[in-house]
């Protein structure tokens, strides 16, 4: 029983207590982040209401919704595509698998630099040169850091960095499906698409659910790429966590009044979003343990 002690202690100290404290903070105005609770001023729901009326907060919520939905569909479709291709008996499967996963092992700072300073660069960028080489002048003209495209540029690079991970998860799901199911389908004359639709897809529902949940958590916590694409807060790329970082840990050069209470309210909202996502996912994609 004592063996449970350290883990339990760690859980209570680093999860339960901070959780309660953040919730409390979100109803208070704090003079500074390190001030003791005696100095907190109770403000009720004010932190929340001022968030709900802030247009920057609205942009942040809109941005993560777009990241979650559009980025999520793109990532999951691509990851599934690669997983299906890799399990269809291609040559050098292990090489492809390692190579597609490779971007996930690279620091997001390095990856986003690759995208921003090279791929999207408006002078010598890969996309610009590639598209003008094949005659796509319209694409070559796109300036990926312009207000219309900055968000999409960020989303494309984020999706590129994520696909490998989700592919691995799908891959392990598909590999658990018994081979003989496919063999009998081939005997019945089912083509590749039919096999996917009638065997693979239904049997990886559980994995699919895992992927959606993982994607939801990562898009709610979206921060690193937003920070790399816009070092200073930018309405086009801001996310709730970015806003929280700004409010609590602050940018001195904008004269921000650091506001830990408002930041805590944001933290609570982010956590509620994750919770809601879990509940909805459980409802839509009920976990059915399929026996095969």
């Amino acid at each position: 029983m004592g063996a449970l002690g350290p883990a339990l202690l760690c859980f209570l100290v680093m999860f339960v207590y901070p959780l309660i404290r953040t919730v409390m903070m979100s109803f208070h105005c704090l003079p500074s982040i390190s001030s003791r609770s005696a100095d907190w001023e109770f403000v009720g729901l004010k932190n929340y209401t001022s968030l709900f009326t802030s247009s920057v907060f609205h942009s942040a919520m809109g941005n993560i919704l777009k990241i979650w939905l559009i980025g999520g569909v793109a990532t999951i479709v691509l990851a599934l595509l690669f997983a299906v291709i890799l399990t269809s008996g291609v040559k050098w499967k292990r090489f492809w698998r390692s190579a597609i996963y490779l971007p996930n092992t690279v620091s997001a700072v390095a990856l986003s630099t690759m995208w921003l300073q090279y791929v999207f660069h408006n002078k010598f960028g890969l996309l610009k040169q590639l598209s003008s080489a094949v005659g796509l002048e319209g694409l070559a003209k796109i300036n990926w850091t312009s207000p219309q495209y900055l968000f999409w540029g960020m989303l494309i690079s984020y999706v590129y960095g994520c696909v490998g991970y989700f592919m691995l998860i799908f891959l392990s799901g598909i590999e658990r499906i018994p081979r003989d199911l496919y063999e009998s389908a081939i005997l019945d004359g089912a083509g590749s698409f039919k096999q996917f639709w009638h065997i693979t897809f239904p049997l990886i529902r559980g994995v699919f659910r895992t992927c959606v949940t993982l994607w939801t958590i990562s898009s709610v916590n979206f921060f690193t790429w937003a920070k790399m694409f816009s070092p200073n807060i930018n309405v086009k790329t801001v996310t709730p966590v970015y806003l929280l970082y700004n409010k609590v840990f602050g940018e001195a050069n904008t004269g921000t009044v650091l506001d830990a209470g408002s930041g805590a309210a944001l933290g609570v909202l982010v956590a509620l979003l994750v919770l809601a996502a879990h509940l909805i996912m459980n409802r839509i994609l009920k976990e059915e343990e399929l026996e095969y």
């Binding site: 859980f11 901070p18 953040t22 903070m25 958590i217 916590n221 930041g263 944001l266 933290g267 994750v274």
Partner: peptide
């Protein structure tokens, strides 16, 4: 615990 976002915990811990 494993699905609580770390931003929810970080402010008091920073304190």
């Amino acid at each position: 615990g494993m699905s609580v976002p770390s931003v929810m915990l970080i402010i008091p811990i920073y304190c």
